[in-house]
Design a binder for these strands. Structure first.
Lengths: 111, 111
DNA sequence: ACAATATATGCCGATATTGGCATATAATCA
DNA sequence: TGATTATATGCCAATATCGGCATATATTGT
């Protein structure tokens, strides 16, 4: 057998750097395919294909306006990733705090 | 050309559900390969291979003890994922808050 | 030295993925 | 209707991935 899961869930969709880049580009405004192409300077079919994956996963939504398609990010679909990674946050946050404590202590001693 | 990036960065490593599962298993304790195998009930080579990927990416670290290898999670390597996804958090959180506001308002009116 | 335990590796087959190019489809305009 | 613009699709080649099985390596114990 081969790979179990494919590009059909948010984790996989976002594993591809170019798709992350597209989502970043869409974070503020909704944009036309051509606007994304111009902004990123990638071949149009490449952008369309990645948008297709993102749409299938639900990370972007598409609105039609004449012959244009306007894409916007659907950030709620990123929540599973946020929810998965957040429980690990305390690991680096704690060590950060510990470092802060050490630094604080050093400053006190200097005085 | 083919796929650009492989299983050499945290995003890709974590895109595979089985690897997420391993990281969850290691979240609390450091564990032996055999302990992971027993806990997940997966074939041992499968576990070792996924651990290999996680180790290459730096998401786990390995300590030797006799003929055993004890793995522990290195959660700081998850920080890039956290940092990437966090800026999108306000999207779903805002709508949540808006809902809260509405509910709060409704309760006030009831009084 | 030999057996047993713990773990990693190598090879294979099946398949998914990505980029590139050409082309199809759809919508607007002259 | 025919041309032009906007976007999606199809096909191909190259390659990476995953699981499964057998096997190698390393360490310990007898």
């Amino acid at each position: 057998m081969a790979r179990t899961s494919t590009t059909h869930d948010p984790f996989n969709a976002v594993a591809e750097p170019k798709r992350r880049r597209i989502l970043e580009t869409l974070a503020n405004d909704e944009l036309t395919v051509t606007e994304i192409v111009d902004s990123l300077d990638w071949p149009q079919p490449m952008v369309s294909k990645h948008l297709g994956v993102l749409k299938k996963v639900g990370l972007v939504e598409e609105r039609r306006a004449g012959r244009q398609r306007i894409y916007r990010v659907n950030a709620e679909r990123l929540k599973p990733i946020f929810d998965w990674v957040t429980p690990f946050e305390h690991y680096w946050r704690e060590s950060f705090n510990r470092l802060d404590d050490v630094l604080e202590e050093l400053q006190k001693k200097e005085k």
